[in-house]
Write a protein that binds this DNA or RNA. Sequence first.
DNA 1: ATTTATTCTACCGATTTAATAGATTATAGC
DNA 2: GCTATAATCTATTAAATCGGTAGAATAAAT
Lengths: 139, 139
Amino acid sequence: MLSKKTKYAFHALTYLGKQQEKTPVLISEVAEKTKVPKKFLESILLDLKKAGILTSKMGKGGGYYLLKDPEDVKLADVIRMFNGPIALLPCVSLNYYEPCDECVSEETCGLNRIMIEVRDETLKIVANKSLKDILLAEK
Amino acid sequence: MLSKKTKYAFHALTYLGKQQEKTPVLISEVAEKTKVPKKFLESILLDLKKAGILTSKMGKGGGYYLLKDPEDVKLADVIRMFNGPIALLPCVSLNYYEPCDECVSEETCGLNRIMIEVRDETLKIVANKSLKDILLAEK
DNA sequence: ATTTATTCTACCGATTTAATAGATTATAGC
DNA sequence: GCTATAATCTATTAAATCGGTAGAATAAAT
């Protein structure tokens, strides 16, 4: 399951994505409207900024706003950033690969093969769908 | 990601499934061969017994052995039992459904729709593949 | 009765997740 | 340059989950 942090990130992105003007929105406004604890949201927005998805302005009139085109914010990016691997086993993860310490060999591991299938089918969706798709569905 | 407990369950099932005779196998043997901590394995095997997948005999000559046909032990059953929901959000889970407390409405939630897709694609695989498939792949 | 092996009850430590508090730094406007 | 504003940084805490352990109780075979 996705962590709360991941869901919060999606909610915040959706809220900012819905904004007409690309003018800064206060953290506290995002927090209120998305019902995400403000202090927790702060760190999430900061991570999204570091990832180049959002940007911000400090001081009066400041706040956060979307930097990337919603189409370029793939669900997979957000999930990986806040939730970790998309694969169900470390030994089939593309971005967080680790061998399974219990497994003798990946070639002969029956679970491995199937989990590669699951990973690929999941990726087909989350690596192609983007914030844009979420926004369209919400309209 | 799947928890260690879930992986351990698969390893134990695979080991028991490979057995020719349906004769009881000691917990300690399974523990040794699959490299799963014995005490931890105990509770896993017990759960699998309660689910009707394995059965056991107590006392001398006792141990665990497969009860169900490997074809009838779907990956989804094992994952749900030890790892919880297969869906990535509680609001799209078939077996563990819960409304998202932050969400206003599931109809208008853009994430909801996409996560239903992911769930269905994942289920297509794990609800159809079984222990039998793992055993065939390991041969 | 003794040995063997599962079953049951309870607990523990480490890690992760979720959230909070307070000080600091950057910016706008007067 | 002062003040108000708002993001940023550092640190701590509370709660939940995960992985694992210990020991007593129960059941069965010989």
